[in-house]
Simulated assay, not measured.
Amino acid sequence: MSQHYEVYAIAFGRVDRQASGNFIGGVIADRSMPLVYYVWVIRSAGRVIVVDTGYDQASADRRRRALLKPVEAGLRALAIDPAAVQDVIVTHMHYDHAGNGTLFPNARYHLQDAEMAFATGRCMCHAHVRSPYDVEDVAAMVRRVYAGLVNFHEGPGTVAPGVGVHRIGGHSRGLQAVTVETERGTLVLASDAIPFYAHFQSRRVYPVIDCLPDILDGYRTIDELASRPEHIVPGHDPEVMEIFPAFSAETRGWIARLHEGPLRPPAVWLDG
């Protein structure tokens, strides 16, 4: 039997970019379009599930990204002890989603079979393909496998009653979205299947890809998984922090309550 969860987005990092760098084929009228980096928390009475683990200061320095606040600080603002987290869903193993390797020492990790095979297989012989991955993050996941701490999913899977994973692929071979049952319906944490609202609105594509048709098919899949379009949460859009209510006045722009619904619709993407 499913239950209803609270869902939070924690913004921990940022990089400034132009819109022309966020779409295959560029844009007609360029503008500022920064990426914000998130982890997500799914919480009910007696259960906490963390979705993705972010990156740390060393990774931020290597990649020339800003670390706004450490992931651990966001968790503690929600009164969550990382050592008490029992389940971590990794949507995919890119550096900004699978870092902070020692933050959750007692967690069981949930990953798609296809993502582990991709991140440890022959495709990583190509520098461009492996560039979003950090070898230490991948090695840490291999160690968890050998320690019996990874649950593998092949396509749709259940992490807890009311929390599911769904392989989307496209951006990386085993990218998975997460569905969460809330009081307002089924919420979809799209992660990098939909980096910005604009990608979903325009059916255009962010330029880090493994399979273009899988990305485009994934838009339809996510639309079907969500109760309503406003229940879809993109993976890197700064607007998430603007349209969803803050956890508290002190955490405005840092932690948002996704389970309460947006205060307004996202802005409509207009290119030109």
Rank of each mutant, 00 (worst) to 15 (best):
N151I: 13
N100E: 06
A246P: 06
E224V: 01
L225A: 02
I89S: 05
A83F: 03
H236V: 06
D223K: 12
V15H: 05
F104D: 00
I24W: 04
G157A: 14
R76Y: 02
I194W: 02
E115T: 02
Q112E: 04
V188I: 01
Q57S: 10
L67A: 06
E115S: 07
V163I: 11
M141A: 04
A139M: 14
P105C: 09
P195R: 09
P265T: 13
D134M: 07
H110D: 01
V129P: 02
G162W: 00
Q3C: 09
R144W: 05
R62T: 07
R14Y: 12
M1T: 15
H126Q: 13
A84N: 11
G148C: 05
A79T: 15
G170T: 03
R76E: 14
S248T: 15
R65I: 08
H171K: 09
R43F: 06
P156A: 12
A98L: 08
R122T: 07
A160P: 11
T53A: 14
I222Q: 03
M1R: 14
V27A: 02
I232T: 02
D113S: 04
A117T: 12
D217E: 14
D96L: 10
V48M: 00
T182M: 02
L187R: 03
R204I: 07
H166S: 02
M1V: 15
V15I: 10
I243C: 04
P156L: 08
E6P: 00
A79W: 05
C123A: 14
H199P: 07
M124H: 09
F200K: 11
P195L: 05
D96C: 14
P70V: 02
L67V: 10
G261N: 13
V50L: 02
V129D: 01
